[in-house]
């Protein structure tokens, strides 16, 4: 029985924001390639060319506007970046070479620049990924990867993960309820063995489910390949539209490299 807390909120759908826009309509593999290429142009850009990053940010805001994804969706999701921000913030303290005084702290100039580079490039990359995930259902992304000739086995593993995340998290939730209804409360380090054992039991259960799913697949003629069920036709116009993003990115990057010589 599905418990209400997870109903309709599996990983794939939670990220996707349903809209009708040019960006949403583009085939998944086209968007994926465009996004990866765009991120590469951002990475190529020297960190001291501040104007270039401002332009990249404007472009992404434009994409978000076209896709009608509001800032209140994008901003909270950017929190995934926080651990990386932490490392970026440390760099000015551990960098070498000439230093500057900021608020009485002696900071490395090279470290400051490197930290800024990581921060801005990471942020732009994260926002690009958020936009891709918000405009493409997870399932389409996987099918797109398949069409991009990503090894089939990897795509299959990812798609099973998508399908069963919900089943396994439900099972985990039931185990938690069972623990707590017998008086268990997690209190610090002494409850770790219990939680670890539950984790082990969950692993065994999931493994056994995997075996049962495999039997069910064999019963319906599975021979190692998932059938290609949807035929998506990608037009030259789709590629042209999507690749305009990294094309503009490339022009900015090359200009920035030339200006920074």
């Amino acid at each position: 029985m599905p418990s209400p807390h997870t109903h309709g909120h599996d990983v794939g759908e939670r990220l996707f924001v349903h809209r009708h826009s040019v960006i949403h309509r583009l085939p998944a593999e086209v968007k994926t390639v465009a996004m990866v290429a765009f991120i590469f142009t951002v990475i190529m850009t020297p960190p001291n060319q501040f104007w270039a990053f401002a332009l990249y940010a404007v472009i992404l805001v434009g994409v978000a506007g076209l896709a009608r994804i509001p800032a209140r969706v994008i901003l909270p999701r950017m929190l995934v970046e926080v651990p990386f921000v932490f490392f970026a913030l440390l760099m000015p303290f551990f960098g070498t070479g000439p230093t500057v005084e900021v608020l009485g702290l002696s900071l490395s100039q090279a470290g400051l620049l490197a930290g800024w580079g990581i921060l801005i490039k990471g942020t732009l990359g994260v926002v690009s990924s958020i936009l891709l995930a918000a405009t493409t259902p997870a399932r389409d992304l996987l099918m797109g990867l398949e069409r991009l000739k990503v090894p089939e086995l990897l795509v299959q593993i990812a798609s099973f993960m998508l399908r069963y995340t919900h089943v396994v998290s439900d099972e985990m939730h039931r185990m938690k309820l069972a623990r707590e209804s017998r008086g268990f409360t997690a209190t610090g380090i002494r409850s770790w063995p219990i939680i670890a054992q539950s984790g082990g039991a969950l692993f065994i259960r999931s493994y056994e489910r995997g075996e049962r799913v495999h039997l069910a697949m064999l019963s319906r003629g599975y021979t190692g390949r998932l059938p290609q069920l949807v035929t998506v036709t990608t037009t030259a116009a789709d590629w042209f539209t999507a690749m305009s993003l990294p094309a503009v990115g490339l022009i900015i990057a090359l200009t920035a490299i030339w200006a920074g010589r």
């Binding site: 099973f160 489910r209 049962r212």
Partner: peptide, 9 residues
């Protein structure tokens, strides 16, 4: 268990 049988999206 239908969850074993239904594995596609």
């Amino acid at each position: 268990d239908p969850d074993d049988q239904l594995f596609m999206p």
